[in-house]
Simulated assay, not measured.
Amino acid sequence: MHRIVVVGAGYAGMATAVSLVGRTRGRDDVAVTVVNGSELFTERLRLHQLASGQELARLRIPELLPDVEFVLGWVTGIDPDARTVRVDDTRVLEYDTLVYALGGVADTGAVPGADDHAHTLDSTHDAELLAHRLATVDTGTVAVCGGGLTGVEAAAEIAERHPGLDVVLIGREEPGATMGARARAYTQATLARLGVRTRLGDVVKVLPDGVTLAGGETVEADVVLWTSGVRVSVLAKGIAVDGRGRIVTDATLRSVSHPNVYAVGDSAAIEQGFGVLHGTCQSGMPTGVHAAVSIVRELKGKAPKPFRFGYYHMPVSLGRHDAVVQFTRPDSSPRRFTLTGRRAVWYKETVSAAPWPTYGRMRKYPATGSFWPRGGRYTR
């Protein structure tokens, strides 16, 4: 029996598991186990909606993965030499192949006070805590720290859902800085229409009642949301990692120090021709599929193939009734083509925010099937 253990059931981990199920159906010499700290799948792409007070579907991982063994618990340690995973410090799982998909969380340790005084969007629980806090503040200021796409989506959603609140978006660069001129201008105009104020600056300290900027200025706030930067947990001692704690992989997504360990999603430092992938659902799901394909190839005595990926789009919701989609080159630099308004809302909801039809198709494919177009880029 070849034991495959997937630690983490986010977008990348789920893509790995469902693809493995589809490609090993009918084999009785392969066992797939998924370990996760919650039975509920975290739709991270929708957490800004939950944080604003909306309700999301409750998706149970055991029901989504009926053909695998699901282990509920927190991974507390991995011994790559003994090939074991420790769960809740009470159970030990043995593996022949490990898929490391534990993902990342907001880097609240980068700035003093962020851990103690700022909310995050790392989990369903975190988003619900923020929603409860916002529900108690009729008027006041919400400071969203981090001008990236997560910060933009969160600021827009909160401003639309809570028009009585003053929402200020603080970042090193202007909102939509990675987009083309048209999409950037549309993003900024929509934020202004929703009443979101934007401030350029580095947050150097988070206080109980606001944040301090690099120049010494204090921005008062009743609620602080931290969306700047990502860090990953280093649980696998001895496995080669980069400066941010991500597992360094070879071209096939195997650990350069332990080839029986695959790393996918935010947990992996994956080098492509244009640089290291940045963590998004758009790249995370294809890494999971590729890891599953590679594992099945190894089970058949074949060598895994290199992973190739190119970005395709940058979809950003701006509340429930507006959005912008910036189409990109493979290196994520902006193309000229964009979508805005209702068309962008439809595109965002259809393509980016609902992975379940995709997972369903993966599960149905036979072992010889190929989910992604042959010769094409990995895209969603």
Score class of each variant (00 low, 15 high):
192 A>M: 03
329 R>M: 09
314 M>R: 04
32 V>F: 11
120 T>P: 03
272 Q>P: 13
7 V>I: 00
220 E>W: 02
234 V>D: 07
165 L>I: 15
276 V>G: 04
275 G>D: 07
145 C>M: 12
283 S>W: 04
20 L>Y: 12
94 E>C: 14
100 Y>E: 04
99 V>H: 06
309 F>I: 05
41 F>E: 14
241 V>H: 08
274 F>K: 08
103 G>I: 07
262 Y>N: 00
375 G>Y: 05
189 A>H: 04
334 P>V: 08
64 L>S: 15
93 L>F: 09
167 V>A: 12
192 A>N: 06
241 V>Q: 07
125 H>V: 15
208 P>L: 03
295 I>E: 03
197 R>D: 01
61 I>S: 10
284 G>P: 02
327 F>T: 01
163 P>Y: 12
330 P>C: 05
108 T>C: 01
322 D>M: 00
316 V>L: 08
199 R>I: 06
228 S>I: 07
291 A>T: 04
237 K>Q: 11
103 G>H: 09
330 P>W: 08
305 K>Y: 15
377 R>W: 15
282 Q>R: 11
96 D>C: 14
372 W>Q: 07
161 R>G: 09
337 F>T: 02
59 L>S: 11
179 M>Y: 11
240 A>I: 07
369 G>E: 04
155 A>T: 05
149 L>M: 11
193 R>N: 01
231 R>E: 10
173 E>Y: 12
92 V>M: 15
372 W>M: 14
304 P>L: 01
